[in-house]
């Protein structure tokens, strides 16, 4: 607090509108991000249409060759065409992002709802446990789980990332479920004879989705980033499995040899994707806040 005796704590800060007298009821749609992300998505989804080489073919006569008319983005130290790998490997990266976000969302919704509905002691216990898991650096948990699973395929990686990134969302789910459960319209439904599942599917989940949508989107981005980090560190996907992360794992050698395209190109796609996802996520969060404060 600032020591101002009249400061109210807990109010939303208001931006001084005289400085920027732009009256926007709606946040501006992140058009650029949506188009860019859309293009990247399409490219990955229909990779076969864009690729001009086999992304897995080891062209031993063209190791680490710079971008050229034949290899648009150059080749990697194993002679694979980077342009084709970007689309092909992006698919794996996005798949890992989507799968692990789906998994963490499912865990968060179930865990958070149980916590919100359970007796206070159980609720406290569950929240303590979530905080405990959260306080362990997730990279440690991931490495540990990776070691336990002992496999380095996209599904195993998505599972590992998913089960280590549900905690924040579970907390939001818990708060939201507690808020929605207290609503009179839920009580009304109960007096009409509605059962648990009816209330869950008809009232709780629809009420929950807007509140966690931004977290879901953020989690997709975070999972893509984590995959890249892990693969870069050599504990994610092996170089043979093409993904943006595994492509980046060749970066250490690239730095010494001056083969910039090995880092810059997959890095650019990764960063662009993450920035777009974050931008869209923020827009969803702002929209939701605006809707809530309008009520």
């Amino acid at each position: 607090m600032t020591g101002n005796p009249f400061e109210l704590v807990g109010l939303q800060p208001r931006i001084n509108t005289t400085v920027a007298p732009v009256k926007r009821r709606h946040g501006r749609l992140p058009v650029v991000s949506m188009i860019l992300l859309g293009l990247i998505l399409l490219g990955c989804l229909f990779a076969e249409l864009f690729m001009n080489h086999d992304p897995l073919y080891l062209n031993l006569s063209n190791l680490s060759s710079p971008p050229s008319s034949s290899f648009w983005f150059g080749t990697d130290p194993m002679g694979r065409d980077i342009y084709s790998m970007i689309w092909y490997g992006g698919r794996i990266s996005l798949l890992i992002g989507l799968l692990s976000a789906a998994l963490s969302t499912a865990i968060a919704v179930i865990y958070g709802s149980i916590s919100a509905s359970a007796p206070k002691a159980v609720d406290d216990g569950l929240m303590r446990f979530a905080e405990l898991v959260m306080s362990i650096p997730s990279i440690l948990t991931v490495i540990f789980l990776q070691a336990v699973i002992g496999q380095s395929n996209p599904f195993a990686l998505a599972t590992v990332i998913g089960v280590t990134s549900w905690m924040n969302m579970a907390k939001i789910v818990r708060t939201e479920v507690q808020r929605i459960r207290k609503s009179t319209y839920i009580e009304a439904a109960r007096t009409m004879g509605a059962g648990f599942w009816y209330i869950l599917f008809k009232h709780l989940l629809p009420g929950l989705i807007p509140a966690i949508m931004f977290m879901v989107v953020t989690n997709i981005g975070a999972a893509i980033g984590t995959e890249a980090t892990l693969s870069f560190l050599g504990i994610g996907l092996p170089v043979e499995t093409v993904s943006w992360g595994s492509m980046l794992s060749q970066a250490d050698r690239a730095l010494m040899t001056g083969n910039w395209w090995l880092i810059v190109i997959p890095g650019l796609f990764l960063v662009a994707t993450l920035v777009c996802i974050t931008d869209i996520g923020n827009y969803i969060r702002k929209e939701n806040n605006r809707k809530c404060s309008n009520l």
Partner: peptide, 30 residues
Amino acid sequence: RMQIIFQDAVSALSPRLTIGQSVMEPLDIN
């Protein structure tokens, strides 16, 4: 059968259901 009209009118209706859906809700549930 017993039904209740709540004191708190504003939060008695789900903000996501139309008025019609809310009024039909007891019929749907049963």
